[in-house]
């Protein structure tokens, strides 16, 4: 048997491989550690509870308060209800290149969404407000499908995020922005 002459040699080879494994794991740790702590890339982990039975009576998620609002200080917040089988509102305008906070909750079952072509992604769990903070770089329409099975109508549950260039960004007197899906 050519490759191995004695047990010590075998163990030496194993030890060398163990060093390579340690190196590989260290690299993984470093990549994740740096992206988490230095670049502050964290998933949405905003443990904030809300009673799903009374979501629509809450001040924040009352129907008139849903959608995109710009506060007097310029902060942009999008409030959405994800419900079987639609997002309210269905068309969501956001300004390009500005920080946007999306706050979503569900009065019924588990939903989730992603915004195609971006890193915006979260689960929407009844009983909690999911919060995603992001900046939209590219102007144009982005699809926003529900990405978690929520019942037989799940495949039809889509919204649209319209990223508007800052020059064309408009709000009404209450600081609300609206858009329509026309296709």
């Amino acid at each position: 048997m050519a490759p191995i002459t004695n047990e010590q040699e075998l163990q030496k080879t194993e030890f060398r491989w163990a060093m390579i494994v340690t190196g590989a794991v260290t690299v993984l740790f470093a990549v994740i550690g740096i992206s988490s702590f230095v670049m502050a890339l964290h998933p949405p982990s905003h443990v904030e509870s809300i009673d799903p039975a009374t979501v629509s009576q809450s001040k924040e998620f009352a129907e008139s308060n849903l959608g995109t609002s710009v506060d007097p200080d310029g902060a942009v917040t999008v409030r959405i209800i994800a419900t079987q089988f639609a997002f309210v509102p269905r068309c969501i305008p956001v300004p390009q290149g500005k920080p946007v906070t999306i706050r979503v909750t569900s009065p019924d079952v588990i939903h989730g969404f992603l915004i195609a072509g971006t890193n915006a992604n979260t689960m929407v769990v009844p009983g909690y407000v999911a919060e995603v903070r992001t900046v939209f770089g590219t102007a144009g329409d982005h699809l926003m499908p529900c990405h978690e099975f929520c019942g037989l109508g799940h495949s039809e549950m889509w919204a649209l995020v319209r990223v508007v260039p800052q020059a064309q960004w408009q709000t009404d007197a209450d600081g609300k922005a609206r858009c329509d899906i026309s296709r």
């Binding site: 993984l28 994740i32 998933p43 982990s45 689960m123």
Partner: peptide, 27 residues
């Protein structure tokens, strides 16, 4: 990771432990 009912602390801890699963596979 994408769930709102847990904070980042334990998500991070379990992510780090997940990295270690590669060890027996590499061996």
């Amino acid at each position: 990771f994408m769930d709102p009912e847990h904070g980042t602390g334990f998500k991070f801890l379990q992510m780090m432990l997940t990295v270690l699963v590669t060890v027996p596979t590499l061996l």
